[in-house]
Write a protein that binds this DNA or RNA. Structure first.
Lengths: 350, 350
DNA sequence: ATCCCATTTTTGAACGATCAAAACACGCTA
DNA sequence: TAGCGTGTTTTGATCGTTCAAAAATGGGAT
């Protein structure tokens, strides 16, 4: 019948191979200690019985669960950010390569959610955490550091001391690249549509834009407001309704969402994206590549971030040797040029 | 210092409370067997020591891991389906209410991925599975049933015998509601933009559309092709370029993606959605509610599906008593009416 | 033949919980 | 007083693995 016979244990494998428990265990955990011939016999028995070590038993003895905790925040309604989706996938995949799995849980945001982390630790359900959705003044990095819990965050801690290990995207570098691209195809009046000061991520991106402008001898022009597509539309509208000689020929947006708003503002004025006014977003959301949208955007190397986060965490856990680098990694986003900034009939320059 | 003192065990709690291990265990698992006064003393000790049962130890003894396996498929590039995101969240939340957590893993699609499921089972890492992304001829329900593994699928098995427990959305009912809505606001020539025959989900939706048309005395008109937004645009274009008296006044689309394509076809012809031609989609993706899109769509009760899936699975596991219902639940989507089908200046009818 | 050392294998104990059954306490009846 | 039944608590065994230390094995040197 060849049922999977999930009842195989170390003991039963040992019996079949004619050795003791511990020898089987050694074949799995320290093969070099076992004589080659014995090893072969044991491996055959393992295959024959389809043996897999029982996770709970192993975890009980070693105090390592081989599980990584990952908290999914309640997604705000109408959120079209599939970035975290890809991130989770990458984390899961990278973890699997080392026999680890991801344990999902939910928790309220802010310090109210710390209980859930504490609970999992007390139960010894996880060995460490990967944090995403980190926000300004996030209590988690500090708390976890205090507790001595291994963790890696996707996103710097923007306020307070920079505690713990993290991997992040260099938003400033990305925006600089965007400005340089626009400059290269002829644009000279490039404005920035951003968020209010105080959001770490937003400030980082503005900084990259401003630096690039200054370096290229352009006047930085930044407008800011709280919000998504709706706000982007309003901010863009104001810029586009400027007198013709002051009106920007290119809009760099802090996010794809703002950029969608900006595109709408263009459409309402009969302006063609890419031809009359260039638009660049950030995140490279799936909608950006839809026909008829075709938004130039900065793509985050999400898969790599997930991979590096896991590697860093496994390093902290002593599962792999920690690469010699620093406690953090800053990865560059890559500019994906589409129609919204391409054809570049270069605007006539004053 | 009040460190979390994660070293508390049954034994240490017992010592503090002046009772034996087993009594503490009983307080947790069968409180009615313990004298009220003793119980109080034990509960105090538990609080004082911040004791939480060690998951591995418990799981080793009881053979229940309190983990639910969930496989995330490699998302196809450019996938803008946030439905599964919400589903995972709902599953995680519902599971937490019963002390369960979700274990994420990845696996290739098709029968090549079954190994990963087998591996987790052999390790006794999970108690059962929640399946999503079920497709036609999905090998998983059959295999899991054969193995006697508890599982619940989001989505019927459309081909072969209907094996196992599932929760699904009644696509036919949704489409019927869409047609009735369009009929009520005056439309008489309602066409359907669908997928080729053979996709269970697509066929279900067409069936609902056709049934409604016949009941209302309308001529069903179905066009089909493989694909997403691009295809939707092409199919809609063909319909809209019909002679005026044959041209449909409303388009019911098998998915929001097709609907976005259809909207684009309208725009290219200077037709206003909702006023000249009504459009209805399916899924209520976030983009549907964007200003300037405003697509009427059928919203799937994802949270409820997640919740019911977990409940059903826990029933199979004997954790909660199985509700008396059948092996499956079919939930109705709800129609969210937006501008693309609203103002209904009713088209003049022949 | 004896002893020593390095290599390989085996034996008890432990991880922290629950199960099954035994022991204890107490009031009631015969 | 012995015996019984009910309610409460404790004791020993066990789940499947790994750790630590002990035991066996096999040469080579003395």
């Amino acid at each position: 019948m060849a049922t999977p016979e999930s009842g195989a244990t170390l003991e039963s494998v040992a019996t079949v191979a004619g050795v003791s428990r511990q020898t089987v265990s050694n074949v799995l955990n320290a093969p070099e200690r076992v004589a080659p011939e014995t090893r072969q016999r044991v491996e055959d028995a393992i295959r024959e019985l389809r043996y897999r070590p029982n996770r709970s038993a192993r975890s009980l003895r070693t105090r390592i669960s081989r599980l990584i905790g990952y908290c999914i925040q309640p997604a705000p309604a109408g959120n079209l950010n599939p970035v975290l989706d890809r991130f989770v996938h990458a984390v899961t995949e990278s973890a699997a390569a080392h026999g680890f799995h991801v344990l999902l849980f939910t928790a309220p945001t802010g310090s109210a959610g710390l209980d859930r982390y504490a609970e999992l630790l007390a139960q010894r359900a996880v060995d460490g955490f990967v944090l995403a959705d980190t926000v300004v003044a996030d209590p988690r990095p500090g708390w976890l550091t205090e507790q001595g819990v291994p963790f890696v965050a996707f996103g710097r801690s923007w306020s307070g001391p920079d505690r713990g290990h993290w991997v992040d995207v260099d938003g400033a570098a990305g925006m600089t690249e965007a400005v340089e691209h626009l400059h290269a195809i002829g644009h000279r009046r490039i404005a920035f549509i951003g968020w209010p000061e105080g959001s770490g991520v937003g400030d980082d991106r503005v900084a990259g834009y401003t630096a690039a402008c200054l370096r290229l001898g352009l006047d930085p022009r930044v407008v800011r407001a709280e919000g998504g597509a709706g706000t982007g539309r309003a901010l863009a509208a104001a810029l586009l309704d400027d007198a013709a000689e002051a009106r920007p020929t290119a809009l760099v947006c802090v996010s794809d969402e703002s950029a969608y708003g900006a595109l709408r503002a263009l459409a309402e004025r009969g302006l063609r994206p890419g031809e009359d006014v260039a638009v660049v977003g950030f995140d490279d959301t799936p909608a950006a590549r839809l026909p008829g949208v075709d938004l130039t955007s900065l793509s985050q190397p999400i898969e790599q971030i997930g991979h590096e986060s896991v590697l860093m965490l496994l390093g902290l856990l002593g599962v792999v040797e920690l690469p010699p680098g620093p406690e953090h990694r800053l990865l560059r986003p890559s500019l994906v040029v589409r129609a919204s900034s391409r054809p570049a009939v270069p605007p006539t320059e004053a």
